[in-house]
Design a protein around this nucleic acid. Structure first.
Lengths: 208, 208
DNA sequence: CGGAATCCTCTTCGATACTG
DNA sequence: CAGTATCGAAGAGGATTCCG
């Protein structure tokens, strides 16, 4: 099996040899929020052939980027180093998001990554606290402290404010098409806890 | 032409829809150092079919990432936004570089990108000045000022120090396999100008 | 000569069916 | 549940040819 390579002595080409094939970075994105089973990966990657998923998993294990574990597959520390590149790519792709098309898939867990790329360290300078997002039944947390951010895919920290809404409402707020105050009055967005932290979060994660 | 897409409402998937196909990011890398003609691109991307290059160029023009210009093709401001993602990927790929294999291509112009990803803002805090690298006849400059870096693919600024060597010597120094002082004594590395700035550059760009 | 379009072969992808 | 096997469709790679 002569694996296809660019044959360039270049760091970018090497990275693309390792993770540049179709589906690979999306697979890593799935594992960025914690270990996943084969079945969960399939559901998070609709359209990916099951043989291809098996192939990619094998490649990534051989490359030392992921690990077989009791609960399926998880990222190694080396694999987790891809987070920065994924965030940078996502930041580039964000302006292309537009409105969600009817045939497009969407998963609440992708918001963990979204929080990171949307996070604006400069505007978050004065923000400190934990924001908990409850989206379509799943929980995502962001912990902001002195211009840095940490995220979690479940309830890890004690939240200062809890925001509950369905996916479309959050997507609308994130894109700037939905006004948070209006959504709250309309009852599609429910806020519990510190208003001050919530307003800071809007500043840190909002568009523009 | 139904273009292949991941059909996910996710910023990473959107980015990969736009630039995730084979060769695309390497093509953008070529243009990061300035406008290039079709022929130059072919030479910088050995192994890429000419039809594929034409297709990719068309896609990128349609996507607003590159522009036809008098001298061939150049990046638009939007296309230049890919630099951060490319640097992040290259930083991930750098540990995979190893030694240059005999069948691997290498181009001096790739060092412009390399300087950026290898640049360590923390260690460069006290460095200020312009370093000029002359590699196999081509000139690359790095301008460091208060922890920030700018690069140029030709002689744009007045250099504080000029380092002249062949590609293998620079690759060896970058990977830590060649000691700069030994290389200088051996005559494979020639330094002209400020020793202080050179030592600072070694700290800012060196491995480890 | 630079800048492609065409043709043909080979590999990879994606979907479905199948197995331990 | 976690994969393997199969096969048609799409994409990639190389050579050649065409066009201005």
């Amino acid at each position: 099996m002569p694996k296809r390579t660019y044959k360039q002595h270049c760091a970018l080409a090497r990275a693309l040899d390792a993770v540049g094939e179709r589906w690979t970075l999306l697979l890593v994105r799935e594992l960025l929020t914690g270990p996943k089973r084969y079945k969960d990966l399939q559901q998070g990657l609709p359209g990916m052939g099951t043989n291809l998923l098996a192939d990619r998993l094998k490649e990534l294990v051989e490359g030392g980027l992921i690990l077989r574990c009791a609960h399926g597959y998880s990222l190694t520390p080396r694999g987790a180093q891809l987070e920065e590149a994924i965030i940078a790519l996502a930041r580039f792709g964000a302006p292309l998001l537009g409105q969600r098309k009817p045939d497009e898939h969407w998963s609440a867990s992708w918001n963990v990554v979204a929080l990171k790329y949307a996070f604006n360290a400069v505007r978050a300078k004065t923000l400190e606290g934990v924001i908990e997002y409850r989206i379509d039944g799943s929980t995502v947390q962001a912990r902001v402290d002195r211009g840095t951010i940490a995220t979690a895919s479940g309830p890890r920290w004690n939240p200062d404010v809890v925001a509950t809404a369905d996916g479309d409402t959050f997507l609308g707020i994130a894109s700037g098409e939905v006004d948070p105050d209006s959504a709250e009055r309309a009852g599609t967005l429910l806020l519990e806890g510190s208003r001050r932290v919530w307003r800071g979060a809007l500043r840190a994660f909002g568009p523009g």
